[in-house]
Design a protein around this nucleic acid. Structure first.
Lengths: 218, 218
DNA sequence: GACGGATTGGACAATTGTGTCCAAAATAAT
DNA sequence: ATTATTTTGGACACAATTGTCCAATCCGTC
């Protein structure tokens, strides 16, 4: 009874029919893996949700392990792209740092933390990280391994410009992200889609506390 | 090759032999559910790890769904007890607030966040929350529903005593917890046991930033 | 319209898991 | 020592899943 067409964003940038069917499979697989876990996900369920024959999945993507790996790689790419697209809007020389950092935070929450790709990845890493260690290593490299330093660099830039007072940019980055997610931790886990209105509030709360802690004194 | 005897703390406070076997089953089930997820966990695997016949599990605990529910209830109790035991050491009239709050934070991390029960619960809620909605509701009621207000009350108490400056104690509590877990988020998920030395560092980092944001100005 | 590659649906063997039944053995209670 | 209770291990029916094979069919291209 679920509306499978809304579970994940679709990229229709390629339109050979084979590619299209492949995308349908990957999206359906992502849905089912997230819902049932690797062990609980059946190829039949994936095929049904993708509107595709089971055999087509084996033809195009090989066995279940490989399908899972391809899905993870796909979602990792999408999630990473979304994050760095938002990161480009980071305020470098803000007139009103609280307003601009709050806006940036809201965008980051919307497009890179609450968004389906990011949520899917976090859940799958939590669930199946132990079963696919090398996959988890890849995720760690392209997830936290790239995102946290990127945030840290932007914060260091602000500190260098005198907008902030930061000893350890890497630590500040982790704490900034933690504050952003403070209100998500116990709600989002269940799959609850965070309402737009709350996102703005969350961004404001996090930014305010972050600036209280890291603004230059006086 | 895993040492199953170290996966969860055992409570040997009851020693009728039936109770003992029941505990063995619950502990083994907790291990396997955490490792394999509900769908992937097999009764046989649980029985083997508990050193018990499969039939004994059905005798004592009914079917798989019920077994799972009992395990969740058990771990919830243990986790909650640990949390409130630590909460009793919260500094109410600190001489040196940074030192005392850092010590408390370290204890909270050690005994209630990094500890096996808390980690197990968070993982299972993330993984199976969708499959057992009523169970998840229970968890939310006894987890965040009781812990966050308790922390908020203690913080408000400190604020009332002039040690802190807090508008919204509930928000401050969420942010305090988020800062505490800032360095865990992407490490602990894999099951990595956080080393003692890092815990003290994490507690110090979180407390320092929290106090920077919420200490009375001047 | 005919060709060729992709797709389909169904059948298949092999494996794995659940939950039940039961008689034999071990364990605790009297 | 005898009785009551639990536990055991093995067998069983039933259902689900994986991965393969294959003939029939679809669909775009030439």
């Amino acid at each position: 009874m679920k509306n499978s067409s809304a579970e994940l964003p679709r990229d229709y940038d390629t339109w050979p029919p084979a590619q299209n069917k492949r995308q349908a499979i990957l999206n359906a697989a992502a849905d089912v893996f997230a819902q049932e876990g690797f062990g609980g996900a059946s190829i039949d369920a994936i095929a049904a949700r993708a509107g595709v024959s089971r055999q087509t999945i084996y033809n195009q993507l090989g066995d279940k392990d490989n399908l899972f790996k391809v899905v993870v790689a796909e979602i990792t790419d999408r999630s990473s792209a979304g994050f760095f697209r938002v990161l480009d809007t980071f305020p470098v020389a803000p007139l009103d740092i609280e307003t601009e950092l709050t806006q940036f935070s809201a965008q980051l929450l919307r497009k890179a933390i609450c968004d389906p790709n990011g949520r899917w990845l976090r859940k799958v890493v939590e669930t199946e990280g132990a079963r696919f260690p090398e996959l988890f290593e890849t995720w760690k490299e392209y997830g936290p391994g790239k995102k946290y330093p990127a945030i840290a660099a932007r914060l260091a830039q602000l500190a260098h410009g005198g907008y902030l007072e930061i000893d350890d940019p890497a630590l500040a980055a982790r704490q900034y992200m933690a504050l952003l997610a403070a209100d998500l931790r116990y709600d989002q886990q269940i799959g609850r889609q965070t309402p737009e209105s709350e996102i703005d509030q969350m961004a404001a709360n996090a930014t305010r506390t972050f600036l209280r802690a890291f603004s230059p004194k006086r």
